[in-house]
Amino acid sequence: MKYPVIYRLGRFIPHMVLLALVLVFWEVAVARSWVNAFMVPRPTAVFDSFIRLYVTEQTIYRHFAITMTEAVFGFAIGASVGISLAVASAVNETFRRYVSPYAIVLNVTPGLALTPIIIAWFGFGIGSKIALAAVISFFPIFVNTLSGLTNSDPDRNELFRSLGANASQRFWKLQVPSALPITFAGLKIGMTTALIGAVVAEFAQATEGVGVLMQRFSFQLNMASSVAVLLTMSIMGVTLYYAMELLDDRLIFWRKDSGMARVGRRRSARVRALKAGSVVKA
């Protein structure tokens, strides 16, 4: 809330103007048949499809919810497994030696190529979508968390050593906070790849979800609706990404002055309360 609303709106206006110009040019280009209206839908046609999907027929919501569920659950599984394996690898050298070759092989294997196998294993339902989302979101989360946990600053490691810290103190008070920023970078990437995994699995074999909807429209050569669904996927991606970003900002407060001010105030109140409490007791 540093800048007045008017000022922030002001910075927004050039973007809106540019977008409007592009859309108008696009509309005109299609109307004048500079491009094939059949293959490239007009913005107004896309808008109409949007209204139909979201307002008049309201068909989108069920599919939206299904795909979001797949992506979020897949991400949750990928993140849990990724973080757990990274922690185990960071704590135990032997474990890392045995796990990291597989992680690397998994990384260089195009994850989406697993789609047919995963569908064979998990079936046509939501399970295979969640599984693919989990598999392809796992790697960025695992790698980032592991590198965050193991690459803490040597001077700080030495400080902890000279202060006689034990392994668990070093883990919780040094490695984890040091790893948080890069772990979150991994989580953000993982969140986006989970959505890709869910949609691609839907393309392969499914009855519900935005991927199915998209495929159905494009088979019907209903390009306007296809683009409307594509935009829906963008909305999903942005929503998921910003959810992570929000969490990121809360947790890694020390990157922003506002965060540090907030936590500093809270800490100050806590310490004052603690001291007042002990005076009463004494």
Binding site: D155, L159, G264
Partner: peptide
Amino acid sequence: LMFQRATLLEWRTALDNVLLPTELS
């Protein structure tokens, strides 16, 4: 020990950085 670099923990307030040695023992 004190180093050329302050090696403070940036997620801790000045007070909590000072408390670290005691907290570890």
